[in-house]
Write a protein that binds this DNA or RNA. Structure first.
Length: 291
DNA sequence: AATGAGCGT
């Protein structure tokens, strides 16, 4: 709300006279009283009293009253202030070193990914050789099928026990073919005699379910940084910052897998929109990983 | 603006 409170007597000087040669109104400040600022008070009301010259050259007192936007922090932002420090800030005496003015010249150009054609061709031929050999040797350790798929591609691989567990249940048969059950029907490892059938410890599923995607990561945030930041909410299965394979630079996003989904929920609520390094994190559930 | 690796009988 701007109100012209009071017109004072007609000023004899004209705009042109008040301006210097460049048209700058440098002299105005001298001719007019300085503005007076009051508040904002408890209700956020701020008053400014200033003097101006209006279009007709009249000296005018202007009182401006407005409600000033109070600095409103999100509940999360307030709560974050009570967090214990992590990263560099956790180090003793770090406070004074965290923020500094750099005199370095900083270039923002990014080098393009390198990799020569010659190398690629070489790798290609190696892969072909491998496949020839692999075609003969490829026997899935989980289901015993030959020449069909690698162990890691086995449709039963998610049900396979952890390495070193119950693998002694059934030594490989003499002919080298692994683990067909009695009568020839396939018996998954976890159902074979002596195996723990509780389905709790033995079934090792790769848990990609509680996977969270973090984008807008700063260039120098790495796995341990994510682990530290997200680990505050609960145990993690995995932390991964996507790197450019050629340059090793961070691609600015990453993933975090929580053991418990609720912890993931909390992390998203608290960290989405959270400023980390110089950027505002974007945190949400990740889309399932493609094959 | 943006959705992840590698191991290899």
């Amino acid at each position: 709300m701007v109100a012209v409170m009071q017109k004072q007597q007609h000023h004899t000087e004209r705009w042109g006279d008040l301006l210097d040669d460049d048209g700058c109104d440098l002299d105005l400040g001298v001719l007019l009283p300085p503005p007076v600022v009051a508040g904002p008070d408890a209700k956020g009301i701020k008053k400014v009293i200033e003097y101006r010259i209006d279009a007709e050259g009249n000296k005018v007192k202007v009182t401006t009253t407005k409600r000033v936007r109070t600095v409103r922090r999100s509940k999360n932002a307030i709560e974050r202030r009570s967090w214990s420090k992590f990263g560099d800030a956790a180090k003793e005496d770090a406070e004074s070193r965290l923020t500094m003015v750099s005199t370095e010249e900083i270039l923002f150009d990014r080098t393009s990914a390198s990799g020569s054609k010659a190398e690629e061709t070489k790798v290609d031929s190696l892969v072909k050789t491998d496949e020839k050999v692999g075609g003969l040797l490829m026997v899935c350790r989980t289901c015993g099928k030959k020449g069909d798929h690698w162990t890691s591609k086995c449709p039963y691989k998610d049900l396979a026990p952890q390495q070193g567990e119950s693998s002694t249940d059934r030594p490989p048969s003499a002919d080298g073919s692994a683990t067909p059950g009695k009568g020839g029907a396939y018996v998954p490892v976890f159902r074979r005699s002596g195996a723990d059938r509780s389905g709790v410890d033995v079934m090792r599923r790769r848990n990609d379910e509680n996977s969270i995607r973090v984008t807008n990561l700063s260039e120098d945030a790495r796995d341990p940084d994510l682990a530290e930041l997200f680990g505050q909410f609960g145990p993690l299965n995995r932390v991964y910052v996507a790197l450019d394979r050629a340059t090793g630079e961070s691609r600015g996003f990453g993933f975090v897998n929580f053991v418990h989904r609720e912890d993931g929920e909390k992390a998203i609520k608290k960290l989405n929109g959270y400023g980390y390094d110089n950027l505002i994190l974007c945190v949400d559930w990740a889309a399932p990983r493609p094959n």
